[in-house]
């Protein structure tokens, strides 16, 4: 395997609080190959969005990326890039789509102008050329009447169309990585599939890798090549999609999957994971999942689990998996 496109190591993000600093992302390790689609899954508040923002170096204040973190993109350490070069990466090499298309577009600027801005920030092209490319992009992302719609204001477009504009904006410079932060959560169920399809097509035609953040295993199943599961600021399991979905090893992943309604399990009660997601700053010692884990034993309460490789394409951070692998 060649060097991955994106390599995250020991990523830690903390926020200033009343007493000291509170971590929301803690020693996250992730890798993403060129052209690959990785889904980052977890419940809300587990730090997945902050991880995405950290890659763009857009963690909102007063959040802080800790010094030992490493984010390597195409052979360069993003965290030590000068600000001007980081701006070239944002929108140029890495595009990003957000959860709320309703509020993510500037309300007082025409949508076409907002996409043109993304082009002209990275390429020295005349205004007419930028506009022509914008209309083209609008066609590509499937906005009907693109020649007219470029002059619309965000409030005149539906949520689905707005998200298409966001995709056009993110893909304007054909980035090598597209980060999608819950791209379909705020949309109607009927439009979700279309938008996911569009993201996948755009990625395949341009050869971009996709980091997809979601809490929805339906989305994961539809687009992901690989999956990483996050819990309480850490990755707990990662692996190829089919393998991980069919044979989850970490008790948390197992619990998550069991809590999805499935046609073959009709009539049975849905299972749920006991307890609640701990808030940042109140994370348990050692394995953070142990108070909610049905299989927890002594070691889980005293020792932080390390990465256990279970197959060439799957790994979990769990003592139980570790003991099984040794046995």
């Amino acid at each position: 395997m060649s060097a991955p496109l994106l390599e995250i190591d020991r990523l830690a993000v903390s926020f200033r609080a009343e007493r000291g600093r509170v971590h929301v992302v803690d020693r996250v390790q992730l890798a993403l190959a060129a052209g690959e689609t990785l889904a980052l899954v977890g419940e809300s508040g587990c730090g997945k969005s902050i991880t995405a923002l950290a890659i763009m170096r857009l963690v909102p204040r007063p959040g802080l990326i800790e010094a030992e973190s490493r984010i390597c993109f195409a052979g360069r350490d993003l965290l030590s890039l000068p600000v001007a070069e980081m701006r070239n990466v944002r929108g140029g090499k890495i595009g990003m789509i957000f959860q709320e298309p309703m509020t993510s577009l500037n309300p007082v600027t025409r949508v076409g102008a907002q996409v043109e801005e993304a082009i002209r920030l990275h390429a020295k092209v005349p205004a007419g050329e930028a506009r022509r490319r914008t209309v083209e992009l609008f066609q590509t992302v499937g906005i009907p009447d693109s020649g007219i719609r470029v002059d619309a204001y965000p409030h005149q477009l539906s949520g689905g169309l707005k998200q298409r504009v966001m995709i056009a904006m993110a893909m304007a410079m054909q980035p090598r990585l597209l980060i999608c932060d819950e791209p379909t959560t705020a949309l109607d169920a009927t439009i979700r599939a279309q938008i996911l399809e569009l993201i996948r097509n755009m990625a395949t035609t341009t050869g971009a890798a996709v980091l997809l953040i979601t809490h929805d295993f339906g989305v994961v199943n539809a687009v992901a090549d690989r999956v990483a599961v996050m819990y309480a600021g850490q990755i707990v399991e990662e692996g190829a999609r089919e393998e991980l979905l069919s044979r989850p090893r970490h008790p948390y992943t197992q619990g998550l999957l069991r809590s999805i309604p499935r046609p073959e399990a009709r009539g049975n009660r849905l299972e749920e994971i006991k307890g609640v997601v701990p808030r940042p700053g109140q994370w348990p010692q050692a394995c953070r999942f142990h108070p909610r884990c049905p299989h927890a034993f002594d070691r889980c309460r005293s020792e932080t689990p390390a990465r256990t490789v279970v197959s060439p394409t799957q790994a979990a951070w769990c003592h139980l998996v570790d003991e099984e692998a040794r046995a």
Partner: peptide
């Protein structure tokens, strides 16, 4: 607001974000 984050994500610098996006709104 979210659109400010979008502007940063497409590579706009501080001055552009403040003057073209924030000030305008």
């Amino acid at each position: 607001r979210d659109y400010v984050r979008t502007a940063r994500a497409k590579g706009a610098g501080d001055a552009r974000v403040m003057l073209a996006h924030v000030l305008r709104n």
